[in-house]
Computed example of a mutant assay.
Amino acid sequence: MIAIIDYGMGNLRSVQKAFQRVGCQAEIVRDPAAVDAAPAVVLPGVGAFGDAMENLQRTGMIEAIYRAVDAGKPFLGICLGQQLLFESSEEFGITRGLGIFPGAVKRFPEGELKVPHMGWNQVAIARPSPLLEGVPDGSAFYFVHSYYVEPADPELVITHTEYGLPFASVVGRRNVFGIQFHPEKSSTLGLRILENFGKMVRT
């Protein structure tokens, strides 16, 4: 079973339904003990970085996330969930993140681009990953975000996307992955990514 963390932010039901469409059992959980019991974990999210960190702290989920990562469980952050994996965000001042990956969350440049970055955009594969099995280089996915991750370690970058500047759209190391776009809204190839994540749980 894949635990989808409910901390009061994000389109949880659509993520759950997308996993179910590819044959993966996924449950929305609100209790850290349920995260501890699950063999894999998804951290979704839409909204403000600071509010998300406060909600995770209040619900006791931060410690559960660290335990899941340390235990080697497959872990996937989606959109804001990806950003929370990093050390800090400059949204509304500097806010500390989970610090699982080194690096920071930056805002797209004001006045130079239409912000938020919204709609379909291509991803360029920087290195192979089991998360992208069967996904061709240059495939398009659906994005909605005003901030992007800037990893301190370039080896974290699995794909990058161009939107005025190149940014990391998929990151990962060992059992932990982050995706800036919304696979649950990205048609067949988005579902393929979720299916690939599900295969990590079963193997």
Rank of each mutant, 00 (worst) to 15 (best):
E54D: 12
G23P: 11
A68E: 06
V105P: 02
G50N: 12
E162M: 06
E90N: 05
F197K: 13
E27S: 13
A126L: 12
V171R: 03
G47V: 10
G97R: 04
H182T: 05
T203A: 14
G10S: 05
L12D: 02
E87F: 00
S14R: 10
E27Q: 15
S187C: 15
R173V: 09
G190F: 15
S88I: 01
V176G: 08
K185W: 13
R21I: 14
V135K: 13
Q82N: 10
G111L: 07
A38D: 05
M61P: 01
H117F: 12
V42I: 14
L165V: 02
A140G: 08
A68M: 10
K73R: 13
L131A: 11
P183R: 09
R67W: 06
G178W: 00
T59G: 14
Y66V: 08
F181V: 06
I2P: 02
Q82H: 06
A37S: 13
A68F: 07
M200G: 15
E162N: 06
S88A: 06
G178R: 01
I4Y: 03
V135F: 11
A140F: 11
K73H: 09
H145Q: 05
T188S: 14
L85N: 05
K199C: 15
E90F: 06
Q82A: 09
L43Q: 07
T95P: 05
M61T: 03
N11V: 03
T59Y: 14
A140Y: 11
R192H: 15
H145R: 02
G99L: 08
Y66F: 13
G72F: 14
D36V: 04
Q20G: 10
F49M: 03
E150C: 03
Y147D: 00
Y7A: 00
I65D: 03
G134I: 12
V42H: 11
S146V: 09
T159C: 09
P154R: 02
I2W: 02
I158F: 05
R127E: 11
K199Q: 15
A3C: 04
N121T: 10
Q180P: 00
P74I: 13
E63P: 03
V201I: 15
I94V: 12
R21F: 08
